[in-house]
Each structure stands twice: as C-alpha cells, then as structure tokens.
Design a protein around this nucleic acid. Sequence first.
RNA 1: GCGCCCGUAGCUCAGUGGAUAGAGCAACCGCCUUCUAAGCGGUUGGUCGGACGUUCGAAUCGUCUCGGGCGCGCCA
Length: 546
Amino acid sequence: MKKMSYKQKIQSEIKKAVNGFADEIIIEKPKLKEHGDAATNIAMVLAKARKRNPLEIANEIKEKLKANTVLISRIDVVKPGFLNFTVSDQALVESLSEVFKLNENYGFAQKKSKEKILVEYVSANPTGDLHIGHGRQAVIGSCLVNLLDKAGYNLSSEFYINDYGEQITKLSDTAWAIYEKLNGKEVIWSEDFYPEEGISAYVKKCSGANTSLQLGGMVKDLILKSQEELLSSFRVQFNNWFSETDLHKNKEVDKVLKNLKEKGVTYENEGALWFKAEEFGDVRDRVLIRADKRPTYLVADIAYHIDKLNRGFDRLITIWGADHHGQEVSLKGALKALGYDANRLEIIFVQLVSLKQGGQEVKMSKRAGAVVTIKEVLNEVSSDAFRYFLIATHANNRMVFDIDLAKKQDKDNPVYYIQYAHARCCSIFRQYKELNIEEKLDFHKPDLLMNLFKSDIPEYTVTKDLVLKILDFPEEVILAAKSEAPGRIANYLKDLATSFHQFYTVCRVITKDTSLTKARLELVEAVKITIANGLKILGISAPEAM
RNA sequence: GCGCCCGUAGCUCAGUGGAUAGAGCAACCGCCUUCUAAGCGGUUGGUCGGACGUUCGAAUCGUCUCGGGCGCGCCA
C-alpha cells in the first residue's frame, strides 16, 4: 500500500471535517509563501451550497483540524475564505523518506489498469529525409509513451509505413530519373518528383534494378532503414512498424469498403465511390475509390485504425502534424459508421515548427525547399538538447526552433541547467566518498532527516522549498499524463533544478556537523533520484559529471 | 467563406477558476581561498490582443471581435 502524500492527508482530514461533500476537495499550492504550503477553497465552495458565510465555515474546519499537529503546524483563515496550511516538518520528512524507498520508481505509478494504449506517431512517408517537424512529433510521441507508461498504463508504440500507392510510384519515378541521370542520360525532371537531394544518395547505393518500380522498392527499403536508425539515434523507438501494403494484401481495405457500402454510407458519383462524410460533420464528402479504381489514403487509414482496435487496444492515440487536422472528422466518422466507438481514438495534432536562424524566421515548406532535416540539426546539437527543445513547448502551440540557440553548447541551452543539477548531486557524493568516511548512509530514518530543518531562516527556507518541490513530482507525473502533456515534466524539472541550485548556494552539504551532513546528503540523493526519473520520461540522459 | 490551432514581458515560452501573472534569454549591477560560477542574488520590463458575459473570484469558462498559422484534392 502506497503511503499518502501530505496533500492527500490534508485532503482526507478536510473530508472528514466537512461531512457530506461529495466532490473532490481541491488542495492547491499557493503562489505566495505567506499563504502556506497548501490551501483550499472548500469553505467558499460550501458557502454557496449551504448558504453560509465562508469565513465561518473555514473557521469551523480550522477548529477541527487544529489538533493534528503531527501533520499541520499552522492553519490560517484568510479574506474571502481560504484555508492556508503550513505542513509540519515531521510530515515532510516522512514523505521524503518514501523517495528513497521507491528510488528509481519514485513518482511512477504501479501498473494499475489493464487498459492497453497504442500510440502511433511519426508515420512519415518513405520518400525522403525526415524534417524537423517529424522530429517534433517523434519527440512528443516517444515522451508521451514514456509518460503514460510511467503513469501506470500499458503502452505500445507503432510507426505506420505509407508504402503503398501514389507516393511509391512517385518515388520510383524520381529514383529512376536520378538513376538515368547518373548514367549520363538526359531526363525530363517532373515537378511532381520528390526533391533530388533527399533521394539521390539512396539511388547510388542500389544496383541491379531493371525497372523503376524495382528501384523504387530498393530505395524505399533503404530510406526506411535510415529513418529507423536516425530516430533511434535520438531515442525514438517503436514496438512495431506497420506496413500499409499489408492492409491491401490482407484484404482489410476491401473489407472496409464492403462494410461501408453495407451500412449505406457510400454512393457513386462520376465514376468514384464516395463516403458520406458530411453526414458525420465533415465539411464535404470524401472519395474512397477513385474513378480509376485505386483506393484513396482515407480507406487504408480507416482499415488501419480498425485493425488497431481489433488487435485489442482499448485506446488509440494517433499523432499527426497539424496540417492533417482536416482528416480527423472523416476518419472518426467512418469508424462510427462501422459501429466502433470513435472516442477510443484520440488524435493529437502537433503544430508546425518554424525555424529561426540568424535572427530570421524560415518557414517550413517542402515546396519552397526550405526544409531543415533532423540530420542537419543533429549534426549540430546533442540528442539531449534536441529532445528538450522539441518537448518543452506544448504540441498545440506553434514553436520556433532557434537553430543558433540549439547549436550552442553552453549555459544558454536550458537542458544543461537540469543536467548540471544532477551532475552537481553526483559530484557532492564523489566528494563525500573522497573523505573516506566508512559510515553507510541510512536513507530510511525520518529522525535523521529532521536535522534538515534544524536551522535558521535562509537555510530553512531553501531546504523546505526543495523538499516541497521534490514531493510534487508524483502529482506532476499524474497531471502531465492526464493532460497528455509530457512537456510539463520539462518545466517541472527546470523548477526543481532551480530549487536545488538555490539550496546548493545557501546550504553547504558536507560540513563538520555529521548529522546535518548526513541529512543533507540524503536530500541531495532525493534530488538526484527525482531529476533522473524525470529525465527518464523525457528520454534525456542524466550525466554523473559535466 | 467555412473548420482546427494559437495570441501572456523586447525574444522564446510556463501558468489543474483563486489571493500581488512567472521563468529563461536579452540589458544593467553584484557574488568564486570553501561540495563544479554550466551556479546564485538584485534592477529594468505587462491594459494576459480587444469587448461583453458567467462567477464571491477569469490569463484560464462562454459569446462576439481583431490579428496570425494551418486546412478545406479522385495528394498523403
């Protein structure tokens, strides 16, 4: 049984004090120090329902909780009706000792539900190099997988390979043209072709192809392999790579068509088969089968998502670039038409990345050729910095990737700030070991940890701030998972690093006071554990030294 | 025109309906004989695009409006 956090304890005490309140009692962390360590608005909420003065209610609650000095050292009732609590040092120390017990699992929930979630992301066409926009989706997707996994769900991840249809034909034609060019033949370069620079290196590696399609297949395989290698070079890996071609081969696509027809949500017009998407809220109907009998991307995508559900996943999360948001309604509409619960599918749209270089914003546009590839950026930046930059901004927001800043390998680069805090913790332990002190640290004794708080104002304040920050971590993981925003962890870690650096500046850890030294070493250990666990979610390394 | 996303400090961005809106960068001023100065402290900087509404309380919720991005293919 997991122990309750000090917040949960306060929450349950209040619940007892205000009998008959069904909703969740909100405990929040006040922004101002004068407002204590935890606050609740419960009196104001109750005031309305019970038609009474909130201050009176607050005072009644205060009277009931006053006796619990083990948990709460001070209660204030303020202006409109806030109850502000100051948590006792004893309660903090007890919570802190949990960090050591859980260690590399601190902040992470146990696998609580059997619910299986599949996150599909990147799913780029195998028709060229991955650009920075794919990079953002890759980082967000992989962090989300880590986050939900650590929040207690059963996660799986997948890359959908668009290896069928038009773009493969185009790829083959492009490759063939490059091939002919390499052999000194004159070719007419079509505007429809993919950019030569993204393909030619792969064409050069191929030999023995007799037809454009054969060559295209070889190039496709090489591109896929290089995409996989590139992605894993910044710690993006998938449980499964799913081929679109298989859906066609296995007649899954045909099945979808047949079922849609049976449901009466299709019609023929001008030789094409249409899906009545408008009936499901779309701005227009969508083509399923073209006049030349080739199926569209949409049919395959419907078949793919149904296949995922049939494979036993309870929840599907699909990550798309924001330029694809127009496809959501028709896909979900088709799922609904076929009797599936479309709410089991959630599509996260990642807004586009624009780039800043030399103070100038460069728009990402394939047509304009202003595409910056992941490879180019990774040539300049570490994968740690790359991941940090791309995760720190919420997916809903467009982000500006400042290439010059990301290239910097100095303190302007915020990822180092967090990593440095971790390295500092490790450094302190190295220092301690050099003193040849044999005595083993005991991380399970609240009595020892109480020494943390036996000090005066400046030291007491930074110490308590740091402890409180560390204790926020499990809730932060839950909140981030709930809102599916792994970037919150990056922000949290920055705050935690700040608290630690402040503590480090004010409090010397290794001193002649042995019990204080031991207590502070344990606090440093707790910081190290928390930062390492947070960075694990982000897929960023936690260096022992820098 | 219709749909989705966004608008918070000079720049990049945080901010589960709470109290006096924050951080980093940039600018300026301080702090290393002591565990890593990749650090810490301070100063300057805001009509949270605007209006109205809901609420005891709004950057946060609703409506409208202005501005920006993206989408509205028998492309993917």
